[in-house]
Amino acid sequence: MKFLSIILKSILGIFFIFSGWLKLAPIEPFEFIFVDLGFANWTFAPILSRLVIGTEFLLGVLLISQLFHKKTIIASLGLILFFSVFLLFLLFSKGNDTDCGCMGIHYSMSPIESLLKNAVILLLLAFVYHKGVEIHWSFQKYALTLFIIASLSMPYILEVPDYNVPNPYRDETGYKMKIELLDTEWKNYSKELGSGKKIICFFSTGCRFCRLAGYKLSIIQKNYGKPIPAHFVFWSEGANVEEYWHASKSFKFPNHTLPTEKFFQLSGSELPAVFLINNGVVAKKLPFRNLEEKEITDFLNH
């Protein structure tokens, strides 16, 4: 029974580390879920998400090392219960037809599927709590300190938060956007987009960060409390717009596709590209890392 407990704890530890690792690559969808559900704002979400992942790493290492048996199991039970409460909140607010983000973007799971997974983990943790034994190391206090520092710092090392990232397009402002290029595809579309304040987004439907940008703009609109004047222009090559809406969790903003040459004449060479347009003039061009709620709301309100 002792050997079985060691094996089960090691498997659970590997799973905790694997689960945390998947959330890191990339981490933005996990961050966005906390903001979308109102658990955190844009400033605190990167901290909370990395704290959760770091805790998964720490508990995974402790389970594998077999140290501090009962305390580690109790902490692991607490983390799984926290995830389960989070999943119940997600289930009742968003329904079951959504990806909970529990295994990152690589393995899609609905809230109910993840709750069932958590139930199995809770049963295994309860079993090893009663049947397992604690292993002592002569230097275990020093090992614990090292484990805590390494585990909690690892998410920050592997995925540095996007605080105060310089905008590479900060000087690309004040020029008239060639919105008339759109009229060759949609008659008089430039008249609509060339008046007032608009947010014109150039995306590829298969681009990971374009999908994240769409999801982020949807959360910004939700927090803003009323529709934002966003228009999505998709690169026509290989475009699958319906798949984009499903994969990105984005609100279905007004959208069109544009052929390659005209698309990149307007967007520039890197995607996603989000333009804040005031009466046809570019007020700001934002890449994904600089797509901030304050930038959008300040532009719309002033």
Score class of each variant (00 low, 15 high):
109 M>Y: 06
124 L>W: 07
119 A>F: 13
128 V>Y: 00
86 F>I: 02
109 M>D: 04
89 F>D: 06
85 V>G: 12
121 I>V: 14
116 L>W: 05
124 L>A: 14
107 Y>W: 13
87 L>C: 06
86 F>N: 02
129 Y>A: 10
86 F>Q: 02
102 C>A: 09
89 F>L: 12
122 L>I: 15
118 N>F: 04
98 T>E: 01
119 A>Q: 03
118 N>D: 14
104 G>W: 03
88 L>R: 00
101 G>A: 05
125 L>I: 09
123 L>R: 00
119 A>R: 00
96 N>M: 09
118 N>L: 09
92 F>T: 15
116 L>Q: 08
109 M>R: 08
86 F>S: 02
129 Y>E: 06
120 V>M: 12
97 D>K: 08
121 I>R: 01
112 I>F: 04
89 F>V: 15
103 M>E: 07
102 C>T: 03
129 Y>K: 11
136 H>E: 14
105 I>N: 11
137 W>R: 13
129 Y>W: 14
124 L>Y: 03
127 F>C: 11
111 P>Y: 08
137 W>S: 13
111 P>F: 07
116 L>A: 14
122 L>T: 12
100 C>A: 10
86 F>R: 01
126 A>C: 11
104 G>K: 05
131 K>F: 13
126 A>I: 11
90 L>H: 03
109 M>S: 10
95 G>P: 12
110 S>Q: 08
98 T>Y: 01
115 L>P: 01
115 L>E: 04
120 V>A: 15
119 A>P: 01
86 F>M: 04
95 G>L: 06
87 L>V: 06
135 I>W: 05
86 F>L: 08
131 K>V: 08
112 I>V: 15
90 L>Y: 02
136 H>L: 13
111 P>L: 12
125 L>F: 06
90 L>C: 01
96 N>T: 09
122 L>R: 00
123 L>K: 01
132 G>D: 06
97 D>H: 11
107 Y>A: 10
116 L>D: 02
121 I>H: 00
123 L>P: 03
102 C>G: 08
115 L>Y: 03
108 S>G: 04
135 I>S: 08
95 G>V: 11
131 K>G: 04
118 N>M: 07
129 Y>P: 10
94 K>N: 09
126 A>E: 04
100 C>D: 04
99 D>K: 04
124 L>E: 07
90 L>R: 02
137 W>Q: 09
98 T>Q: 02
87 L>I: 08
117 K>S: 09
112 I>M: 09
106 H>L: 15
119 A>V: 12
102 C>V: 06
105 I>R: 05
129 Y>Q: 07
134 E>W: 03
126 A>L: 14
137 W>K: 13
109 M>C: 08
98 T>N: 03
85 V>H: 00
127 F>L: 14
91 L>M: 11
127 F>R: 00
86 F>W: 10
127 F>I: 14
124 L>V: 12
91 L>G: 03
128 V>S: 05
131 K>W: 07
126 A>P: 00
112 I>H: 01
89 F>I: 15
137 W>G: 14
124 L>F: 13
85 V>S: 09
89 F>T: 13
132 G>V: 11
95 G>C: 09
95 G>I: 10
123 L>F: 13
126 A>Y: 10
115 L>A: 11
100 C>F: 04
137 W>E: 10
123 L>S: 12
127 F>S: 08
133 V>K: 12
137 W>L: 15
87 L>G: 06
101 G>I: 07
136 H>Y: 11
109 M>T: 14
106 H>I: 14
105 I>Q: 09
107 Y>D: 00
90 L>S: 04
